[in-house]
């Protein structure tokens, strides 16, 4: 039976926002992306609700929306800093020494080209296989492996974190 759009939204809005937050590294952009996608999904719900896994379909819409959104806004500054993130939801207390490493890693992830970033998120946050990532990104599995390999190489490079409160310029490549 096709779930109603309202039931779908009630159940999936938080997972979608969580995915979009990780994908965009920006809670505000995540809200905008999810909102835009759900508005479009509502218009086509007769069709989307009838597919086997509506949430997977909408998640792919979120990915595509993010990729095209980034393309439209590639030349713009996007504030990405812990201040911005914490203004939406205060961070959970973290007293471990991993905190700075994770924060530095987040900033490096945020600088990755968009498809590399999406591939990293799908692999290490969503635990997708190469074939699933390829389907999600609309590319070959070899391309997925290339994206992840290049991204990991970039992330391994020694990097000094930027001070908190400084917006990062995310005019990343469009490849």
């Amino acid at each position: 039976m096709t779930p109603s759009f309202d039931d779908f939204v009630a159940e999936q809005v938080t997972p979608l926002l969580r995915y979009a937050t990780v994908l965009t590294c920006d809670p505000h952009l995540a809200q905008d992306v999810v909102q835009e996608v759900l508005l479009r999904a509502q218009q086509k719900w007769d069709r989307i609700g009838a597919v086997d896994l509506p949430h997977a379909y909408v998640k792919r819409m979120v990915t595509n929306e993010y990729l095209s959104w980034r393309r439209r806004r590639a030349a713009k500054d996007v504030a990405l800093c812990m201040t911005t993130l914490e203004s939406v939801t205060p961070p959970v207390g973290d007293t471990t020494h991993h905190y700075d490493e994770r924060e530095a890693m987040l900033q490096r992830i945020a600088k990755l080209p968009r498809k590399q970033r999406a591939a990293i998120v799908l692999r290490y946050y969503e635990n997708y296989e190469d074939s699933e990532i390829a389907q999600m990104l609309g590319c070959a599995e070899g391309t997925v492996r290339s994206h992840i390999s290049r991204a990991l190489a970039t992330l391994r490079m020694d990097h000094t974190p930027e001070p908190a409160g400084v917006g990062l310029r995310l005019g990343e490549g469009l490849s």
Partner: peptide
């Protein structure tokens, strides 16, 4: 890879409350 996983998990903790999105919808 473990650090990437940890960092993304931490980022997910900053997911905004769904209220504004639902209201906007």
């Amino acid at each position: 890879e473990q650090l990437v996983k940890d960092a993304l998990g931490k980022l997910a903790e900053r997911t905004p409350h769904p209220g504004p999105t639902l209201n906007a919808l």
